[in-house]
Design a protein around this nucleic acid. Structure first.
Lengths: 203, 203
DNA sequence: CCAGTTACGCTACGACTCGTAGCGAAAGAG
DNA sequence: CTCTTTCGCTACGAGTCGTAGCGTAACTGG
């Protein structure tokens, strides 16, 4: 499967791939999603425009891959000892990524495009969303191991619940950072964690 | 102030305004944000392209106004008798708007653009976000009047807390509907409400 | 009724971006 | 050394952008 395609002929330059993705991120920082053009990225990367189109169908796919690389590098979560500390940790990780200018301008834009492009939506899910989700699931497992959260017996209910928690955490951070346009600092993370753990009625 | 500008000369056609905004929403449904063009909207509305540019600076501002009209019409919240019921109500209102094809494709796109355009961000806030926020504040006041939530003494802390709750509710709905791409139905609304009210540790 | 003022529809325009095609050269596999 | 694929380059038609210029339409104050 891995060697089935392109066993012969000139191989694609891995260096070009790196240069293109780097150039894409740089262009996102300087120009933002709206003014980023394929021709500009090609020029920055020092490759021909046709080379871009041989590897990516268009701007959407290219930008998803360029941003996904950031999520790959910067998303991990050490065990901070308690459920609350882990939630604060994951919130601050998300926020650190969302407040970069590259991701800030690109993420919402590709998600917007994905509402009319199912293939793009799947690509985003695999490249970005699922990576975030794993952190939430990890924190959940740790909390269950500590006895802070009950073990769930029904698998489908557990999955539904995990989806819910993920949407709440990721959604709140995204909304705070991108829609409300305010910074996700430690103070906000503490307040959010207290709300999530204790609820509105909790003290 | 209101009569200070354009007291003389031919007045702008209010009918043209309506036709343009209707055409914009129709174009969003058919084409989506990405393929919507000013020329196409003008043709649909039966006006000249120059007329659009006399009233809106560009695609971003036009679409914000077109979508804002929907939020104006469909955002109110009857008193449902309890905090939990009110939260479910507001969640389902948000969801009903977000699941329309016009708003689905437009909202994230203009928010993405607004990360590089402060004036646009303010316009979105005033036209859309603040209208949503009022519903959350309203539900909060009702809950306090019922005694379900404590009255807060410190005004700045209360405002900060209201911002937090709003980001959590709106963020969760947006994330569920647009990023996870799953429907916000009554079952999800119930689960979300239970989590928000009781917290992770609450039963 | 008449000038003054503003909005309108229409046309045309240069600048830009898109995505593709065609070419000869380069880089590997067998 | 041949076959295959990628590469950089150039060129292209199509489409969009935002603006300018023009004559006409609509409304106001004298």
């Amino acid at each position: 499967m891995t060697s089935a395609r392109a066993r012969t002929g000139r191989p694609r330059s891995a260096e070009a791939d790196r240069a293109i993705l780097d150039a894409t991120r740089a262009a996102l920082v300087e120009l933002g999603w709206g003014k980023l053009t394929m021709g500009d990225v090609a020029a920055r990367a020092g490759v021909a425009k046709t080379t871009l189109y041989r590897r990516w169908a268009g701007k959407n796919e290219l930008v998803v891959d360029a941003v996904a690389a950031l999520f790959d590098e910067h998303l991990d979560l050490p065990d901070l000892g308690s459920l609350a500390a882990d939630i604060e940790g994951v919130v601050l990780r998300f926020a650190a990524l969302l407040e970069r200018p590259e991701t800030k301008t690109a993420l919402m834009a590709v998600v917007a495009e994905s509402t009319r492009d199912e293939a793009l939506r799947v690509r985003i899910r695999r490249a970005i969303v699922d990576r975030q989700k794993r952190l939430v699931l990890l924190g959940r497992e740790r909390a269950q191991a500590r006895g802070e959260l009950p073990l769930e017996e029904d698998a489908t209910a557990a999955a539904r619940n995990a989806d819910l928690i993920f949407d709440v955490i990721a959604g709140a951070v995204v909304h705070r950072a991108l829609v409300s346009g305010q910074s996700v600092d430690e103070e906000w993370a503490r307040g959010f964690t207290a709300l999530l753990v204790g609820g509105l009625s909790g003290v």
